[in-house]
Amino acid sequence: MVIDTRKLQSEEDLEPMIEVCDKIHNIPKFENKNHEIKWLWAEEFKHEFPMQEPDFLNDRLKHMSFLTLCNHCEKAPCVRVCPTKATFKREDGIVLMDFHRCIGCRFCMAACPYGSRSFNFRDPRPFIKETNPDFPTRTKGVVEKCNFCAERLAVGKMPACVEASNGALTFGDLDDSESEVRKVLRSNYTIRRKPALGTGPSVFYIV
């Protein structure tokens, strides 16, 4: 996935994408910040790219909001540490979760260097505004995160946030040199989060 942050200037630009993701994936809203569940959210540059912030960063980037989600890492630490294979990598590179197998040990949360994972500290169901019957709700005690809309890809649709992005997000197969993402990557300078860790994030940012 490539995120063209030039086309997403303000927090309002991000909202429709976050909203649609929350809605179709039955993400609950909690008062208590400790219990928060987040798949797609906004962060400032210094939090999105900690230790990558140049001194004297220009004002636009400094105060801008960046989309934050699971990077579907090529060498995903969360997959490596999971003791039950509840977190696994699909052939196509997408990192998925089996909510019925997860024992809630939260090893994957400690392992993810991007804070992409959330844990259900309590039953989320009473806190979902409007349940989408086409996507499973979760129980207490399991971990979850962005699934690159695997359920939509399966029926030939693009991820919901990509669809709602007005062209700011590009999604496709990174291994296919003729794909749309690769074209965008060829013609733009992009950065990734914490590249030095060797996890190989699949989400690229044009800044």
């Binding site: 219990h35 928060e36 987040k38 309590r122 207490k140």
Partner: peptide, 10 residues
């Protein structure tokens, strides 16, 4: 209730 009764967080 779930682990929400503890002080742990995301």
């Amino acid at each position: 209730f779930g682990l929400g009764i503890t002080g742990m967080s995301r």
